[in-house]
Nucleic acid binder design. Structure first.
Lengths: 251, 251
DNA sequence: CCGCATCTGTTCGGTCGCGCACAAACGCCG
DNA sequence: CGGCGTTTGTGCGCGACCGAACAGATGCGG
């Protein structure tokens, strides 16, 4: 699919943009630029001054923290439900976190000033962004608990579900090594967990490619953390009408 | 309404209130009510609709998440540097977290509508609250990483330092059991860690009472997480002039 | 000053995840 | 088709933390 940069339909693939009143969106549109988001692209490094916000359409971005010794952990995950760069309107100019493209795709880029500007001018946008911030906070908080109390197996399920919710398909391209980086665990741990899921018939996988066969099972095997985050996200960010809901589980 | 407790000095013990322009503070003042904050008081439960915000003066409040099986973990900690209830202006009316008084003392209580109102009216207050939100996010993010990668010993140091930063003294009243709840680990783990610190001469303790003897050592023994949070907090929330800095390490 | 509840210290076996070291499978490319 | 780098599978030994159980210590209230 070729993407003329300002196709309204493409714009509205991002839920935040889609939920904006037409007037707000039109004012923002001239500043929005559609970008390729290749796997592994670093949107900003630890300590960088943020210059842009990114509104993913079909890409997924991980916010992660990298420790001095190189160990890393995913703090939260951003897909077409949100944006990278809440720091821009919260006020600090930098964050001690890194944003990395975890699933290749596209995103709209918006200069920081334009976002800040819109944030102050538009009540609707402000409301939306603040609620999204709240959703992000919930996600982080749940990650805290999950890291502390749940097994790698459970966390893998949670992570798969969160990622799946932000994808248009049931497949995802991602090596176990990368998943391990996200979860902050060893690759071998992920291998084992993936093996179990495969044996249970919940997924199939081969060399950087995972297909989810039984989403319901995944939800059963996951810890409560996924449900909490999902519930809160749905509550805080009602999905835009007319845009179909990706992967809402029928159960 | 008679309100003896509205001593401006006491008000300004809370850094957020202290940083407000006089006009904003005066408008808020009639709504502020000084409260006793006894140890263990629950400000709000999981799922509660928030009615008030709380601005601690000499108390400390923990935001924690309690899992279905009863296990808990502290998500962030709020003292006189901030407020409980950022959800009020972020937009969700409820949070899936619990707020519990961890160190007894006092706090000013503000009705939710008053906070929301002020948030929308006052640029200064909005700026302040958003930056504080950012600081809270940093704290949570760091807690994610810390839970994943660091030992109980290190985490205890981090926790002691964070708590100490929000206290006017070097002593704190807190059983190991409670600390364990905060950190989300077993009490025995805390006992061991505390024992080590005692042997090193960093703290002394007895029955729910810990005195920090060597703060610098605590910082050395802590993981990098404390420094990151402290640095970000200081950067985002400049301390109010004229109010002395509690426990800034002389080094 | 005694009793008792609370808090703290310690032990022991078990499990989970880590670090390391390889071996096997896969798929891309020449 | 064969080689090679990447990805995945597995098997150790180890340390950290857990769960449970219990013994000592401490301080408060009667």
């Amino acid at each position: 699919m070729a993407r003329p940069p300002l196709d309204i339909h493409t714009l509205r693939q991002n839920h935040v943009l889609a939920a904006l009143p037409a007037a707000d969106l039109e004012r923002l549109a001239p500043h929005l630029q559609l970008l390729e988001m290749p796997l592994g692209k670093v949107l900003h490094q630890t300590g960088d001054v943020l210059r842009h916000a990114y509104f993913p359409t079909d890409s997924i971005v991980s916010l992660l923290y990298v420790l001095q010794d190189g160990a890393s952990t995913e703090i939260s995950i951003v897909g077409n439900d949100g944006l990278v760069g809440i720091t821009l309107f919260l006020g600090g100019d930098t964050t001690p976190r890194q944003a990395v493209v975890q699933v290749a795709g596209h995103a709209y880029r918006l200069p920081g000033e334009a976002l800040r500007d819109a944030f102050h001018r538009s009540d609707a946008l402000r409301l939306l962004l603040l609620r999204y911030t709240q959703a992000q906070i919930t996600q982080m908080a749940q990650t805290v608990v999950c890291n502390r109390h749940h097994t790698v197996d459970q966390q893998l399920c949670r992570w798969l579900l969160l990622t799946l919710d932000r994808l248009p398909s049931r497949e995802l391209t991602m090596t176990q090594e990368l998943i391990a980086n996200m979860l902050g665990v060893r690759r071998e741990g992920v291998t084992t967990a993936v093996g179990k899921l495969q044996r249970l018939g919940v997924i199939t996988h081969s060399r950087g490619h995972i297909v989810v066969l039984d989403r319901a099972a995944l939800e059963r095997l996951s810890c409560e953390c996924y449900a909490v985050v999902r519930h809160e996200t749905d509550r805080l960010l009602p999905h835009p009408p007319g845009i179909e809901e990706p992967l809402k589980s029928p159960a």
